[in-house]
Amino acid sequence: MTLATETQTRSRGLAARFFNHRDLSLMQRRARSAWLLVAPALILLFSVAAWPLLRTFYYSLTDASLNAPGEAAFIGLSNYLDMGGDFAFGVLADPLWWRAVTNTLLFSATTVSMELVLGMLVALLLHQKFAGRTILRTAMLIPWAIPTIVSAKMWGWMFHDQYGVVNDLLAKLGFIEEPLAWVAVPELSMWAVIIAEVWKTTPFMALMLLAALQMIPEDLYESARLEGASAWQRFWRITLPLIKPAMIVALIFRTLDALRVFDLIYVLTSNSEATISISGYSRQLLVEYQDMGGGSAASVLVFMLVAGVAVSYLFIGRVKLNETGGHH
């Protein structure tokens, strides 16, 4: 917002200075060329994102099969819920869909809150001055950069029930007597997935928060210290309010990312019922069962869920930000 107005004032000042009598026509010409400049990106974006999205909406209302989408007939909302027969049909009547919703919400809430706490701790650590700080920051980029599939395979190997290091370490430390089947047992497999995800994404959160921490002027802390504020008070009264805008942005990014999780679960736990996500469910219906109509309906539901969460985040964020007087 500020940047937009900034540009505006700047252009106006510029126009007034150099083109007093012609400034309107210049602004108009620039506005016209602006559309020309964004056109290639916009057209591409429309054809590879907006159009397929609209088609997914359309297919969700048909009985299309992935083999022959051309022979689709319009069937209304039956893919979502069909109460017509003796039993209810459709995605919303499928217990596995609701299982996937629970899994995804549990996964997202747990991973994002763990990332926030751990990321905050790591960011505070990296904000201190100590030998080896740069090396640590570099090392933290490794989990972030590793392809999710590689991370899934690595953790799958470490969680191996017979030969895995996780069981080996836990046994050596005396926590377990029998090896645990991390990936296979339903109660454990979600935790295996969560641990692998938190390992991979905490660095992103930490780096975001660190960047925000580094923008807080040091003298704020200095004066607080002189007035006798404890470290805890300094954190709650200075650090947290000042990094809140960046924190909310990082939270939105991470939550939306977690809600669409697919790769990790597909590879680490083979889309098992205990861990399958809504994206995994939709893709399974669409690709493996060739049910283009049902798969599209599930995809639309995924889209609406993610969009709903995004909107409520923005709403909560805005309300809170307005209370504290805006984040500029």
């Binding site: 088609r55 994206s279 690709v287 283009m292 995809s299």
Partner: peptide
Amino acid sequence: TLLLTILCFSMFPQVAVLSGMFEL
């Protein structure tokens, strides 16, 4: 509006375009 649209596109779930993309 344009900026907001672009931001939204960068965040929406991949699976939402899967069947439309199949067709394309």
